[in-house]
Write a protein that binds this DNA or RNA. Sequence first.
DNA 1: ACGGCAAAACTGTGATCTCACTTTAGCTAA
DNA 2: TTAGCTAAAGTGAGATCACAGTTTTGCCGT
Lengths: 258, 258
Amino acid sequence: MRIGDIFMREQLKVRSRLERGSAAAMDRDGWSRIGPLALREGQTAQSQVYCTLREALISGYFRPGEEISLRRAAAVLGTSVTPVREALRQLESDGGLEVFGGNRVLRVPVLSPAELLDIRDIRTNLEGFAAEVAIAGMRPSRLRLIENACQLMQRAADAGDADMYLENNWRFHSLIYEAAERPVLMGLIRGMWLRVGPLIRTAVTAPLHFDRSMNSHHAAMAALGRGDGAALREAIICDITDAAQDLAVAPPDAARSA
Amino acid sequence: MRIGDIFMREQLKVRSRLERGSAAAMDRDGWSRIGPLALREGQTAQSQVYCTLREALISGYFRPGEEISLRRAAAVLGTSVTPVREALRQLESDGGLEVFGGNRVLRVPVLSPAELLDIRDIRTNLEGFAAEVAIAGMRPSRLRLIENACQLMQRAADAGDADMYLENNWRFHSLIYEAAERPVLMGLIRGMWLRVGPLIRTAVTAPLHFDRSMNSHHAAMAALGRGDGAALREAIICDITDAAQDLAVAPPDAARSA
DNA sequence: ACGGCAAAACTGTGATCTCACTTTAGCTAA
DNA sequence: TTAGCTAAAGTGAGATCACAGTTTTGCCGT
């Protein structure tokens, strides 16, 4: 079967899925929010596939255990399997995907409690350190962006808009860490968010999650205003610990084992 | 040109390079120590290429700035470009390789002083933490292996055998961290070693490097014997800091810029 | 001997095809 | 209705080819 044929069929599937409306949001797969790539010149198809899927994973478009097929991904993204395979392999290397069954299918990882603990402690170390370093690189313009992200997050929390909340949550944190001007460190942190991205969407449904999280965020803002690195670090660590708590009490339900 | 032809030609090149003897060790490239894969069934060619090259990078077989060609790698390893491309892309994702010129050639990264500092601080955080956690998971059998690696390292240091020293240095550290039983953390630490691997071989030429490093290692052994997590952490951090010092005073010489 | 230009070699990228294997769908028979 | 088997569809893995670049080589003219 030709790529074009699969492409058209997949587009029809996606279209019909979307037309079913938000009532069918539960059986949406991650592809429903992803369209064909607008192939920009100067960038390889592979890197665009990689970036697109990484952002989708961080944003929680895909649920834990969801399987990603090479041909399906290629069809939806409007390219061939070759760049997709490289991108998926890269995501596997990042820990954002894992090989699953005897069929070697790639799927979004289903994290064990031990792995969650592992990731939580890594995050407190790396993000706490990044926050402390970030104080030195903080500038008024950057501070305004962070302030803005925090406000948007508060507004999303008040409105119960999980999408907007998660988007600005990542923006808030990454803006802080970027001030540390540590590209390698930033890459590791992004890798950790890639792993927890598919879970965070379930965490925000935990009772009082928004309140606890926003408490930490406001504490972080206050520490930023005072230029208090130690306090900022503690606020970030508190945020991470609370989030991990909400993930632990809402464990993955459809955890098919190998 | 067929893969087989390239393969034979490359093998001849490697052979002739080896026959030139150890006097020509300076213009050895990383491939001279790598032979064709013994394709084990049950594992994909891609993963074997990945593991082979990752170990080679950690062991410092390739020097910073050295370029890795897809077809050349495929020829030496006795496979086609497809698995090699995926493996190299994965290594790029790990930070073990970087795309270089307008030709998009993959090469071993040439780290800037800022990146070295970045990596050093990440290592002190992650490896320090891993060391502290490892105390709880320490068992007599494991301790014996670590003790053995330390002795071999001491012997290599006395003999001035850099190869043997580096091999047991990685074994020593990884055995400690593995006792923490944190797979994700272990992966991140391995990633950092992948980045500094090509440099460490130059660091060991620094005066007194062996002495300083072995001091830290013996301190770590003592802390392990006492079950003193804080002391072990400090010993590890000291080792990392000293090594970073030796890397900073011996900066990469052939740092071709883009 | 040296500058410049053209051809050859080499680079990664992406598409396509085949293969071996697994999963699923559907049909047949009890 | 259900168990079981078979065929179809789907899966990733790997090899090969074509292509558009870049880099290197080598030759020719000055």
